[in-house]
Design a protein around this nucleic acid. Structure first.
Lengths: 170, 170
DNA sequence: CATATATGTCAACAAGGCTGACATATTTTT
DNA sequence: AAAAATATGTCAGCCTTGTTGACATATATG
């Protein structure tokens, strides 16, 4: 137990040891959070990269390739590889935008929807159980803190709002 | 706004949309949580794998290679690569265990401690700011939920308690 | 018509996971 | 003492998923 640090912030009563613990908790929690999906994806010969694409396309039907790149913050080539597989194997469909023929809008096909649901269900169940175990009211705080950890620019991407966001800001 | 789902669990009042949002929040939050350390590590020619090793060795001075493998849940070879670099470049020291000559106990050297502090400081600051922004009391709930997401087996590893844990359970 | 934009694709590279095999030192068991 | 188990190190090679830079094509826009 180190003695209270000389308050550098105005009056932050935040325990240093507790902060250290959160760093570890984030590591373990994220690993367990992705473990089940990873195992399911492996059966399809997919990885976490495929999961992200399937998830965000499912959440934002009709998202364009560039919007997806902006969201995932990976390079065109990284996306191309996994997207190609997903399209070739019938999980995702690309339709040319009627208003701008250069754009390819992405949609989940039925096969993709089934996989997406399967993956999301597992993760949702894990969170739901954690909420129950952690006690009522913990859910809102949990979400609030997560949201505050996120770069303000990305906060508006949460909630399947990427397409609308583009119209507002882009 | 979908209408309330037919409660499949006993009486779980958990909003499905909220759960979906958490999935996204976890993705963005973890990415931003690791972004700053990643940038610092890159200056040293290191990656996230090095960070994990430095962190857990710093948190558990005298941890053995096997304990580190169990904690990180990676293979010997994956660890060997980054550990070799860290030892060669003077960030980590290996001492033979006096009680069991087969074991190599790991310690941070001064160089390693400095880097560890630098990295931890950034992450702690990010969390601390999020707590302030999210409001008082959010911290405890946040930690509680994270802990509940974690596999019960790993919960006892949080808090720099890996060495003691080994004595208790191993 | 010139330029900018959205996308696709090729080649090559790096980090960090993985496997399996094998060597060595040391401890524990028989 | 011999045998077996344990802890570690190392070699070779593979995969996924990130990276860069270059170039091609279609479409939109000034």
């Amino acid at each position: 137990m180190t003695k209270a640090k000389h308050r550098q912030e105005k009056d932050a009563p935040i325990n240093e040891e507790a902060l250290r613990q959160v760093i570890e908790l984030m590591f373990f929690a994220y690993r367990d959070f992705t473990a089940e999906p990873d195992a399911i994806l492996a059966e399809y010969g997919f990885g976490r990269a495929h999961h992200r694409v399937i998830y965000f396309v499912g959440r934002n039907p009709g998202i364009a390739v560039n919007q997806l790149l902006d969201t995932l913050k990976i390079t065109k080539q990284s996306l191309a590889r996994v997207l190609r597989q997903l399209v070739d194997e019938g999980f995702i469909e690309q339709r040319t935008d009627a208003f701008d023929g250069r754009r390819r809008l992405l949609y989940l096909l039925e096969k993709g929807q089934r996989l997406e649901q399967k993956l999301t269900e597992r993760q949702a169940r894990l969170i739901a159980r954690a909420y129950e175990e952690a006690g009522v009211g913990a859910a809102d705080s949990f979400r609030a803190v997560l949201r505050c950890i996120i770069n303000s620019d990305d906060r508006s991407r949460v909630g399947g709002d990427i397409l609308a966001r583009e119209e507002r800001e882009g």
